[in-house]
Simulated scan of single mutants.
Amino acid sequence: IRASRTNPLTIDIDASLVNVHSDKEGAQRNYKGGYGYSPMIAMADYGKTNGTGEVLAVRLRPGNKAANSAKDHISILTEALEQLPDEFYDEQTTLIGEKIMVRTDSAGATREFLKHVDSLGLQFSTSYTLPVVKEHFVRWINQKKYWEPALTADGEHRNNAWV
Rank of each mutant, 00 (worst) to 15 (best):
V20F: 02
K144V: 08
V133S: 11
A15F: 06
D23C: 11
V20L: 06
Q28R: 14
S106G: 07
D105R: 04
K144T: 09
N7E: 02
G108F: 00
N64D: 14
A15L: 06
Q83E: 12
T78A: 03
Y128E: 15
D118G: 03
R2F: 10
A107C: 12
R61D: 08
T129Q: 13
D154N: 13
P85W: 13
F124W: 14
L95V: 06
D154H: 04
T6G: 13
K145D: 00
D45T: 07
Y146W: 02
D45F: 13
G97P: 01
H21V: 04
A3N: 04
S119G: 01
E135K: 10
A66W: 14
S75V: 11
S119N: 01
S69G: 13
P131F: 04
L17K: 09
L130M: 15
H116Q: 00
Y128R: 15
K115A: 12
A107H: 06
I41T: 15
A27C: 06
A107W: 03
G155K: 03
R103A: 03
V132F: 02
R61Y: 10
N160F: 05
I11V: 08
H157Q: 13
A57E: 14
G155T: 04
E112Y: 00
D105P: 12
L81I: 11
P85N: 09
L56A: 07
N30C: 12
I13D: 09
D23I: 15
V138T: 05
L95S: 05
G33T: 02
D45M: 07
H73T: 03
G97N: 00
A15K: 07
A153H: 10
F88R: 11
Q143L: 06
Q28K: 15
L17F: 15
I11E: 01
